[in-house]
Design a binder for these strands. Structure first.
Length: 422
RNA sequence: GGCAGGUUGCCCGAGCGGCCAAUGGGAGCGGACUGUAAAUCCGUCGGCUUUGCCUUCGAAGGUUCGAAUCCUUCACCUGCCA
């Protein structure tokens, strides 16, 4: 039996711009309309948390499942041990126990997005299960034989690395990922893999392997690489990548990231990262174009994505914190509870009374050295309770304390931190 | 294995005995303008007990009053030859 599938899926994915590339589109569209398709998407544990780029895949998996298809989410304990070649150069291999810990963390990040019940329940898989016991001889005979080295050398990632060098380890990565597809095809009848467009070579290699080794035609979809309006990479915040783990990036900072989206990109981000219906997104795009200063699109985007990732409660707290800290009112008018909650979201520290502004900035984490603190003050970029600090030697007194004994430090326009003095 | 070239601050890349914490570009950070947008312009961009001191130019030694710059050894990378 096949579960009822949503015939509008392909058009929706296309409209959202989620299909940057795919194998035979007509055949794929037909397959997705005919019945529940087993599909897989893989995540390598190259860090302790997923980030913005992975979120596209997680949400796409959810879209496919909601449309009736059957997800196999692979967290690559094996591929994570090897490392996908990248232009930046050879990776440093991580120890097995580190990889395994990251596998566990990433699995638990993915699980909330999928449903593990019903006709098209999701399954979590780990390629370590079918590679750990595999012998080198079997691997070379059964898998390696299907990979012409001349074709492998022609791939962009490999070609780019030939100048600077690439290890046999990374060169072989594509065999492992292709084998995953073959293995999932054999074990679970998986006939579709998708991933970021930077994975296109790996995706098609898997399709090719299944054609050669099993004589079957399967499919691949590449989702677009998200970039800023100027074409540069996304996902950078002050702390680094846009992590999904709240311990690595607070829900407040996460919410702020989306709130600061460029006008030009709001529509695209809404389509890729939210489940809002088409009419609603189109209305928001129009509003953003007509009244950009209201930033209706950015607000809807930030709320929707933060809710998907961190939940309703965290989203409300992030919004409340931003309203308190970026509001037009005087900070002195906020009550201690609101202030403490807001600063807890934005980041806070403590310092003994009598500490000067330079050391306060350092303690807040807004700067990383005293020299940077002095420089920031000299540049007019440091603020205490929303007032520019002009004197490097200034020492805030009891009259500067906000309710609850707080001082609000700010660097630039948006980077805030609270210091509790006592 | 031989020969040649390379290894500079977050990245790219100048410097080739003192004027070098080290030209320039990019990224980052701050300011102005705005809408917690983009673009643009300006400033800034190792650390500190900041008119000075300390640590940086692959690593360790050495020459010199003085080295990122010269010498020696080691490590890694690239190219040519075998």
């Amino acid at each position: 039996m096949s579960a009822a599938v949503d015939p509008g899926l392909w058009d929706d994915l296309t409209w959202r711009g989620l299909i940057a590339n795919s194998t035979d589109a007509d055949a794929l569209r037909a397959a997705l309309s005919a019945g529940s398709v087993g599909f897989y998407v893989g995540f390598d544990p190259s860090a302790p948390s997923l980030h913005m780029g992975h979120l596209v895949q997680v949400l796409t998996a959810k879209r496919l499942q909601l449309a009736g298809h059957t997800p196999y989410a692979l967290v690559g304990g094996a591929t994570g041990m090897i490392g996908d070649p990248r232009d930046a150069g050879e990776r440093v291999l991580n120890p097995l126990d580190t990889v395994q810990e990251w596998v566990a963390r990433i699995r638990s990040q993915i699980e909330p997005f999928l449903s593990f019940e019903g006709d098209n329940a999701a399954t979590m898989v780990n390629n370590y299960d079918w590679t750990a016991g595999l012998s080198t001889i079997d691997f070379l005979r059964d898998i390696g034989k299907h990979f012409p080295v001349n074709r492998m050398l022609a791939r962009d990632v490999v070609r780019n690395r030939l100048e600077d060098g690439i290890s046999y380890t990374e060169f072989s990565y594509v065999l492992l990922q292709s084998m995953d597809f073959l293995e999932l095809f054999r074990r679970h009848g998986v006939t579709l893999q998708f991933g970021g467009s930077d994975q296109w070579g790996n995706l098609t290699a898997g399709v090719e392997l299944i054609r050669r080794a099993a004589g079957e035609r399967v499919h691949a979809i590449a989702t677009p690489l998200m970039t800023k309006a100027d074409g540069t990479k996304y996902g950078k915040t002050e702390g680094g990548a846009l992590w999904l783990d709240p311990a690595m990036l607070s829900p407040y900072a996460f919410h702020q990231f989306w709130l600061n989206a460029e006008d030009e990109k709001v529509g695209e981000l809404l389509r890729v990262f939210t489940f809002l219906p088409r009419e609603e997104i189109e209305a928001l795009e129009k509003q953003t174009a007509d009244e950009p200063f209201r930033r209706a699109g950015q607000r809807a985007l930030a709320d929707a994505v933060t809710t998907e990732v961190h939940g309703e409660r965290e989203t409300q707290q992030a919004k409340a914190a931003a309203a308190a800290l970026f509001g037009t009112g005087d900070l002195h008018d906020l009550d201690a509870t609101t202030l403490a909650a807001a600063l807890g979201e934005a980041g806070s520290a403590s310092a003994p009374s009598g500490t000067g502004v330079v050391d306060l900035l350092l303690a807040s984490g807004l700067v990383t050295s005293k020299g940077e603190a002095r420089r920031t003050i000299a540049e007019g970029g440091a603020y205490l309770n929303n007032e520019r600090i002009t004197d490097v030697e200034a020492v805030p007194g009891s009259g500067d304390l906000l309710p609850g004994g707080w001082l609000v430090l700010r660097r630039g326009k948006k980077r805030l931190a609270g210091i509790q003095v006592g």
